[in-house]
């Protein structure tokens, strides 16, 4: 998995975020079976307990559901994930703009630059 989490932030929320993105972007479609806790832990290179907590959080958020004995699946209604992707977009854009400001470019400069990109 090509996930490179930020070392300075707690892992579990970042994993939830990443899964949200995967669901929102269509990598995982509704009713797709998710990897087992163990497989996910190995592919992400994280502790199985972290994956367990992430899955539980995603379930609380309504993004996934558990079928006893079969595993975890992506929920039908993934609008929540789309919402969190939108939040992510906002955060990343805000971050980008403040980085550009730190380099000395005004907001308008940056907007024009992006337009021409």
């Amino acid at each position: 998995m090509n996930w490179k989490p930020d070392k300075n932030k707690p892992i579990c929320p970042q994993l939830c975020e990443h899964m949200s993105v995967l669901i929102a972007s269509g990598e995982y479609n509704p009713h797709d079976k998710l990897p087992s806790v163990r497989d996910m832990a190995i592919s992400a290179g994280v502790n199985p307990n972290t994956v367990q907590r992430a899955y539980e959080t995603l379930e609380q958020q309504g993004l996934i559901y558990t079928m006893r004995g079969s595993g975890r699946f992506v929920a039908e209604d993934v609008s929540v994930s789309k919402q969190s992707v939108k939040t992510l977009r906002f955060e990343k854009t805000e971050e980008y703009f403040s980085q550009m400001e730190a380099l000395g470019f005004s907001k308008d400069d940056t907007k024009n630059y992006v337009k021409e990109w």
Binding site: N8, P10, G45, V46, N47
Partner: peptide, 25 residues
């Protein structure tokens, strides 16, 4: 990334025992 918890030890004393996410947060 693989650790749940860490225990810091120095000079024969336990300095800290917390989860990784707690420390990062």
């Amino acid at each position: 990334q693989v650790l749940d918890e860490v225990v810091f030890i120095n000079n024969g004393h336990i300095v800290l025992q917390k989860t990784v996410d707690q420390i990062r947060e």
